[in-house]
Design a protein around this nucleic acid. Structure first.
Lengths: 215, 215
DNA sequence: TTTAGTTTGTCCCCTTTTTCACAAATCAGC
DNA sequence: GCTGATTTGTGAAAAAGGGGACAAACTAAA
């Protein structure tokens, strides 16, 4: 087992492995080899083994991995044995959709509060979650023990909102505003930039349509 | 100018550069150096130059890059000089939120159709976009000349939906279902996996809370 | 024209990530 | 207990990505 720093690419794959294992449980087989996993889910077996080896020796040579045991290990490694309480800042279309989306699909992330500046929205409920005034942010965070924040406001407000979030002591932030943000070392910021993803598709289309990249 | 294969990391950065240039136009300066860009937007100047050099020699030594000219080049490279017509499959919360989101923020991507299987939704409109029956998918795609598809259905339906999409001849797909999908070489699939992003945050929190990764 | 000052494009090296390959470990059957 | 068949964990090679440094190219001013 290595004690090096774990890269984010590795932890992202752990999420994928966990998903695979969840699909495997309930199908009968109690063990699975890295090769079977790789073949079935189109992964690389060496990479699976190496990723897992970062956290311990979970497998048995000649046998493979015990499905349920490995699943439990991965859940624990990813911190999914504890519940997280999520605040979404911005109760527009995207924010409310996310409130709904997380509520339905995720069991470890509870959206407990929405925030907005618009007085017409404040006080209302979306998917049984109250919309609070952003001015009360720090208080609500403390009251509900919120540990994850989601930024779903327009790009020009994102940095200000982020500073409010970090001042309230939240260390994990997901950002949907299409703009790069600055944070201190001790805060984890994950930006999901849909504009970049779309433009990446656009690039691909322009390449194939022209049948050749060189003009 | 290099003629190697362009990596997706590079094209993603082009999107970022384009955004920076858009912010710069209207601020007066007609030229900008890679160093100024880097300093202002927290990038690396060598990387900017290298990324741009993949597509031509846009700069002038001793001067820098002409802001508007470079912006136009990037738009053309990314295929943003043409409009794209987008279909969103799945008219639930996420699908409708995306319809709204793209409609407001993106100028080159027009959401022209939503699709669903739920009869209660079919025929209605969201953000002025009609919800069609998924059974009519191929026809509507042809009629509206749709070239980009967005999958916003539950994970267990995603692969079937994707096959419908590719059969209709669409070559660029964005997937929000938290599941890996299989496509043929000639189709570009971009998966935005919010579950992985969230679990990545969870991992980070579990690391810092235990104050040490080793148990 | 020459010189001093800028800034690009690119070579080269270092780091990170992925993949290959194989010894070490385990199991099942005889 | 030994043999043959698996399968892990990992060292080493290969591939990909990022960044420093500098010659080449250009401007401006004398």
């Amino acid at each position: 087992m290595k004690v090096e720093k774990i890269s984010e690419l590795t932890t992202n794959r752990l999420s994928v492995y966990l998903r695979c294992l969840n699909e495997l449980t309930g199908e009968g087989s109690s063990t699975v080899s890295s090769d079977k996993l790789a073949k079935r889910f189109h992964l690389n077996s060496a990479q699976i083994r190496k990723d897992l080896a970062c956290f311990g020796e979970f497998g048995v040579r000649g046998v493979g991995y015990y499905v349920e045991e490995l699943r439990d290990h991965l859940q624990k490694i990813l911190g999914l044995n504890k519940k997280h309480r999520v605040a979404i800042i911005g109760a527009g279309r995207l924010g409310t959709a996310l409130a709904d989306y997380y509520g339905f699909t995720q069991t470890n992330f509870d959206v407990v509060a929405l925030f907005d500046t618009n007085e017409l929205r404040i006080g209302k409920k979306v998917s049984n979650v109250e919309i609070f005034d952003i001015a009360d942010f720090a208080n609500v965070v403390k009251k509900y023990k919120i540990d994850v924040a989601v930024i779903a406001v327009p790009a020009n407000f994102a940095q200000i909102v982020l500073e409010k979030i970090t001042k309230a002591g939240i260390k994990a932030v997901m950002n949907f505003a299409p703009t790069p943000l600055l944070v201190t070392e001790d805060v984890k910021l994950k930006t999901v930039d849909l504009t970049i993803s779309l433009e990446s598709l656009s690039y691909f289309l322009s390449q194939t349509n022209n049948s050749n990249g060189n003009e």
